[in-house]
Design a binder for these strands. Structure first.
Lengths: 337, 337
DNA sequence: ATTTAAAATACAATCGATTGTATTTTAAAT
DNA sequence: ATTTAAAATACAATCGATTGTATTTTAAAT
């Protein structure tokens, strides 16, 4: 902390103008004459005045700040959502505090508490994979605290969620493989405690059903979809007969599986075709380039933030779920020649 | 903002205990009896009390919060540095506010102001590429405000910088190419306004000199090292005679150049070997995998944060520059068989 | 039962800005 | 020159927590 920070009272004393007038001048209130404003602004600059936002927020009971909690900022999808959030927020004159939960429940809980203690006006959150207990949100929701869930929805009680149509995306991804001649399609699924992965799995099943392909339980491999899970999954795939395609619920597992299979001289897509999910930057670079689902990241950030501001300003929690339409990006990993 | 938030005064009234005692109890002061503490804590929980950090910070003149400004949170290097920062900070009981400047000077300036207005106890920053004017820092440095520069140092006046040995890393990267039989090595250089890229360029030159390879000016291609710059650089390389290797000052440009050259049937590393810089995750995945420099990201975050806390607590700005040793990660793109 | 020191609690000011109300100043109208 | 309304400024309380000092309570010692 800098010692001897300049306050409005220092300006007040220096000019022999009451601090209330100084405050109003700095906030460009019409109640202060132009002449006085000029004088005050000049002196403020001269003294190196810097507003103390803490005091201002305390007094006004408004922080003009929103908090964002994502599992991991380095994930391209979340970084892109954050870009959308920041753009919308800055346009509205709001600051954004970015936090990462690292998919850890305890940490997420602490972050929520810290944000609330700092009196953010609202929170945008993509809940951690570990989170199954929503009590750390519930207290605030009941009070009408503005909070919006994105990507990973919170489906207890009435909340506002912004998600993509995971079912449809998965359905289309799987159907795309079927239309390219694949019949024995393995699904790399994520933790079924997460509704998002449930939906992706359902989309996969529905596509099989539509095309009269019998569902084989051993073709659904559940894991946390981390890099290492992809390798383990790939080993399992090699032990299954006939597999000619994989639809992975995220890119990371798809990519590590592809890399492992390549070392085993499996040809992609000729032997096994691949479709991922999320459109991570690596998916465009790997060989063959990975067919994947674009999740409308930037758009999701904008939509979620707009909804949050509606809640903050109207105080009417609307409790809607916005569903964005995903887009299948077809690259080389899924087209059998 | 939630209406009717519970304050210590509500607890005070409910229990007929003075608010000062309530405050001390909540902060676990030894001046409050155990019996009273239990009573207060119970009531606080019952009423759903949540500390107002704004008021607390205002009064104590300590925010227990540090600010971090990086060009872009999605860049793997910065995300890893942030992990190191957060780990160190949380252990010390500090909160971390993460901001991204998007390499934009105006935005960076605004972020610094916002952090200061919110009275962070110190700032960790990797300055934006656009920044050549340091006046937005200078005011605070002069006041002894704790600020540490990492990766991209601020080399005006006396500051504390945490950087890697860019010269040595580049020297070794270039020498590695030479030792693998390359003689006509192009350098993709970054903006020379940034000392970091100056140093990388000097390392390249020094390695050539040591091995008696004449320096050719047209072999140094300066750009912003973005994806598109890599492609443009690759086109220039194709027009130069004899080139058998490229040392790029970052991975991004190296990777897009490699991709472009592959479409032109240039074999990597046989025709042109490549070495990058930063160890982006993509570098391990691209084919051939890219030899690159590991920048000690996580370690850098830890060291920078530790230095910051020294400044915050001792008030003695030490003004040192810590130089971390980089590590060359040798992969397939640089080994001519 | 009284004195005394320590423990526990209450009082009151404070951090820096904001804002409703009161007062003073200015300028227009007579 | 005086009245009057509007404009400009000053006064004073407030946001919620903290903290040095004063007071009260408790418990030990006589």
């Amino acid at each position: 902390m800098i010692k001897g920070k300049i306050t409005i009272h220092d300006i007040s004393k220096a000019l022999e103008i009451d601090s209330s007038t100084v405050s109003r001048a700095l906030n460009n209130s019409p109640r202060v004459s132009k002449k006085t404003k000029t004088k005050i602004l000049k002196k403020a600059k001269e003294l190196g005045y810097q507003r103390n936002s803490l005091a201002s927020k305390l007094r006004t009971n408004r922080s003009n700040t929103i908090g964002v909690i994502v599992p991991r900022i380095s994930r391209h999808f979340f970084a892109a959502v954050i870009s959308g959030i920041e753009e919308t927020a800055y346009d509205a004159g709001y600051d954004v505090i970015i936090c990462q939960s690292l998919d850890n429940y305890e940490r997420e809980k602490k972050l929520v508490e810290t944000l609330l203690a700092n009196r953010v006006d609202g929170i945008l959150i993509s809940i951690s994979m570990e989170t199954t207990n929503y009590s750390h949100f519930k207290n605030y929701i009941d009070n009408g605290f503005p909070i919006i869930y994105f990507d990973r929805p919170c489906e207890v009680d009435k909340n506002t969620n912004v998600i993509i149509n995971d079912f449809k995306a998965s359905f289309e991804a799987t159907e795309h493989l079927i239309l390219n001649g694949c019949k024995n399609i393995v699904h790399f699924s994520g933790p079924q405690s997460t509704t998002l992965y449930q939906k992706r799995c359902k989309g996969y099943k529905a596509a099989l059903k539509k095309h009269n392909i019998p569902l084989r339980k051993e073709y659904i491999i559940e894991s946390n979809l981390m890099e290492n899970d992809g390798i383990e999954n790939a080993k399992k795939v090699l032990k299954l007969p006939l597999v000619d395609a994989v639809f992975s619920a995220n890119d990371k597992a798809a990519i590590s599986a592809m890399q492992y299979l390549k070392t085993k001289n499996i040809k992609i897509p000729e032997d096994i075709a691949f479709v991922g999910f999320s459109n991570e930057p690596i998916s465009a670079v790997i060989e063959p380039s990975l067919t994947t689902v674009n999740q409308q990241d930037f758009e999701m950030g904008k939509v979620a933030t707009t909804l949050l501001f509606e809640q903050i300003n109207n105080k009417s929690s609307i409790n809607e779920t916005k569903i964005l339409e995903p887009e299948l990006i077809i690259r080389n990993s899924s087209i059998k020649k």
